[in-house]
């Protein structure tokens, strides 16, 4: 490929200069960021801080998916929205902030919830997905579409004073390839009983706790991009050494004397419904409604302590 002598605008050299002199980034890393297309699903407590730092870092395209509108109860943690934006679409509110922070990014609003019907169309053109949503049903749907479309997935969650982060499907190899990173279903083959699931609305959340997790998603996003891990090229000459890629999970407990803990999770599950050899997933099946995620996860109406 032809390398232009000055691949960035003069203003971009100034803007990203502090980041480009970090040895693990460099001009090559900055160009990879500029070429990358990142999708954030959920513009709430996780999505807001993640979006701010991913936009600040200078990705090429940043898509935001959220069907909700800004509420006053969001503002203690969803720091891109302002009091004046209450009642407007979260994706529009967030993008108006992000444009003022960094106008060099192409922002794409998707002002609806992700559904089995629209998932392929929305996710297809991105390189990497962040799950910043807040229900088990969306977490299974996002994991499934990332397996089907071979996108790495950075998934985080938070409640009360705790947070969790996992990088899934990394490397994003086709279903049945044991060297691919595990998916959400490998780690959690069965959904939790609906009565054990607590939302931030019901259980509460400290804004800065979910903020830490969202910014950590941005850190992982930048790492995957600059390390060239967006695509797992099926190089026919590559010697496959049987190496598998386990995921790890970062646990954060704000009130613990050891606030962070890193635990080793499993590799791909051979019999996984989504990424295993005999995967039951297909784009057609997904779109036609074969998988009812809400039914699968149960209808969480009332809520217990957990």
């Amino acid at each position: 490929p032809v390398t232009k002598k000055w691949p960035l605008l003069p203003e971009e050299y100034k803007r990203y200069g502090r980041q480009m002199i970090v040895p693990s980034i460099g001009i090559q890393g900055q160009l990879k960021l500029k070429e990358s297309k990142v999708l954030i699903i959920g513009a709430g407590g996780l999505g807001c801080p993640a979006a701010a730092y991913i936009a600040g870092a200078g990705v090429g395209t940043l898509g935001l998916v959220d069907g909700d509108e800004v509420e006053i109860s969001n503002l203690h943690r969803q720091i891109l929205h302002t009091s004046a934006k209450v009642g407007t679409k979260k994706v529009d509110s967030a993008i108006s902030f992000l444009k003022s922070l960094n106008p060099h990014v192409n922002y794409v609003p998707h002002p609806s919830h992700l559904t089995p019907q629209n998932a392929e169309e929305i996710v297809l053109n991105y390189d990497l997905v962040l799950d910043c949503t807040d229900t088990p049903s969306s977490r299974y749907l996002i994991s499934d579409i990332c397996i089907l479309l071979q996108k790495p997935l950075i998934s985080a969650s938070a409640l009360r004073t705790d947070g969790q982060l996992i990088v899934l499907n990394s490397p994003p190899l086709p279903a049945g390839d044991p060297a691919g990173g595990p998916c959400y279903r490998c780690v959690f083959p069965k959904p939790p009983p609906a009565e054990s699931v607590v939302s931030c609305g019901d259980g509460g959340i400290i804004g800065a706790v979910v903020g830490v997790m969202g910014v950590l998603q941005a850190v992982e996003t930048i790492k995957l991009i600059v390390q060239g891990k967006l695509k797992a090229f099926a190089d026919p000459n590559e010697v496959r050494d049987g190496k598998t890629n386990p995921a790890s999970m970062l646990l954060f407990s704000a009130n613990s004397s050891q606030p962070f803990r890193n635990v080793r999770l499993r590799t791909r599950r051979a019999g996984c419904f989504a990424c295993g050899k005999d995967s039951g997933l297909s784009l057609e099946g997904l779109k036609s409604g074969n998988l009812d995620y809400v039914l699968f996860c149960g209808l969480a109406s009332s809520v217990d302590v957990l």
Binding site: G42, G44, G45, L46, G47, C132, T133, D134, T135, P136, R139, A156, S157, A158, L159, D162, G163, Q164, F188, P192, S196, V197, V198, S199, C200, G203, I205, V210, M249, L251, R261, V263, L306
Partner: peptide, 10 residues
């Protein structure tokens, strides 16, 4: 031995 309940909030 650590028991972790998965969180879903965001």
């Amino acid at each position: 031995v650590l028991f972790v309940s998965t969180l879903h909030g965001g």
